[in-house]
Write a protein that binds this DNA or RNA. Sequence first.
DNA 1: ATTTCATCCTGGAGGC
DNA 2: TGCCTCCAGGATGAAA
Length: 287
Amino acid sequence: MPELPEVENIAEGLRAEIIGRGLAGICVITPGMIRHPAAWKTFVSRYAPQRIVAVTRRAKRLIIVLENQAAILIQLGMTGKVVVMDSASPREKHTHLILELSNGRQVRLVDPRRFGRVAFFTRLDPQNPDPAMAAAGMGKLGPEPFSIPAETFRQILHSRRAIKTLLLDQSRIAGLGNIYADEALFAAGIHPVTRADQIPSPQADRLRRAIARVLNRAIHHGGTTILDYRNAYGEMGNFWKKLRVYQRTGQPCCACRTLIQRLTLAARSSHFCPQCQKPNQRSLKSF
DNA sequence: ATTTCATCCTGGAGGC
DNA sequence: TGCCTCCAGGATGAAA
């Protein structure tokens, strides 16, 4: 399940492979994956012969920047992956989009569950992509999780919702998914059901820094591979070896040996150490 | 307005 | 072995 660190690694791998190459053609295999624009066939025919000038990322969205500020956006959803292969190599099942490069290589989007999506832009500012994405109906994104000012973070936590639920809300903070939300909460010693506005500010600041630290470490280790994630070279990430709570239910906590527990919150599993992450009184009452 | 919930979709796991 | 059911959860849009 690609979250921010996985997308960052994919972008990094893609940069070396495709920047400076010409985009010789775009092959849409599954039109249902294209969410924008409705007239995407026009984009495909008109903007295909362009040079790729950059590969960037906004939250979990991968942005391939073309000349004249045209851009292709890929959101990987749960099971999406991007691979670069020779055009002659056999096409994997569930391949939905192929970008043909001028050197005979291909960028392919493979996504068994089709939760991912693709959008084409005739004009998107790589420094400020949010307006174009909003105009495409892609939903608001909160700030990137690195370097959020303490005061901004305090405002984000001003909510009665459980902190875990809040961390997964992309319109509040963009880029966290279930894995790194659990890992950041463990690192900050906060129980997932804790009401966000009941977290004392020293602990809130610990969480703010834990989020950035966990994501940076995951990027450094090539991301986390649970099932499907691969980088642009088809390699698995190594961060799963570093996970402290995620999918470790019943295993001893790395800090205190208490067994990791799991609970369902907002229809998602949360993993936590009941000893290191004590719920406060308010959250106990509301849960 | 805020928050929750069903929905999309396939593959893998476990039960029988 | 094979069939069935359940589960995984990112993002969205409808409903409470």
